[in-house]
Design a protein around this nucleic acid. Sequence first.
RNA 1: AUCACAAGUCA
Length: 245
Amino acid sequence: RISYNTLILGCCKEGKVEEALKLGEEMVKQCIQPDIITYNLLMHGMCNTGKYEEAVKLWDQCKQKGLAPNIYTYSVMIDGYCKAEKIEEGQNLFDELVDKKVSLNSVVYNTLIRAYCRKGNMMAALRLRDDMRNRGISPTCATYSSLIYGMCNIGLVEDAKHLLEEMRKEGLLPNVICYTALIGGYCKLGQMDKVRDILQEMSSYGICPNKITYTVMIDGYCKSGDMKEARKLLSEMAKSGIVVD
RNA sequence: AUCACAAGUCA
């Protein structure tokens, strides 16, 4: 069963969801009962290929079989709904989970927070962040990178920067993803001088830009018409050992 | 370590 689940995970990661489903049927024929993990994997695969309706079917099937959804099941489905632009549905599932009095974790919160951030509903996103804190669940880098991204996306880059400082106060160390999101915000506004400052700050904390960080900055310089600086970054990237593509 | 969440270019 573990072997099958592992195989299914492999298929899903390759995007071969049909094959994963076949493996699920094959399990049943071998008299190996799919467990909740099997279902979680399949639902995740469906969601990631845009077939969230299929995932919902699996969810129902799961309940009919008397397999109880766990926290992973919920986060997969909440994410699936949100990525299909059905935030309301995602929120409903979240509320259902809250009612169950099961202990929530940061991943479920982060999933919903990210959805609100992408939609530009920062009030809802920040309210959820406060909510998780009140329940004693610590926000993580994923929480903040979504929030920072969301703030930047509506042009409130200074608020985003402030969130980064808030992280430190909470004893969370901003990682390269948080910084990259913030840099992206400054780039979008053409504030390349600020980008320099952030880079400086990063290196003072020993955080190195990665391929995505460089891509964001190069794009920023190109769009602000500074091709010289963009080229400079490209060679700097190569020098830092990143495989340039 | 059998499963879930965050940042990028072009389309």
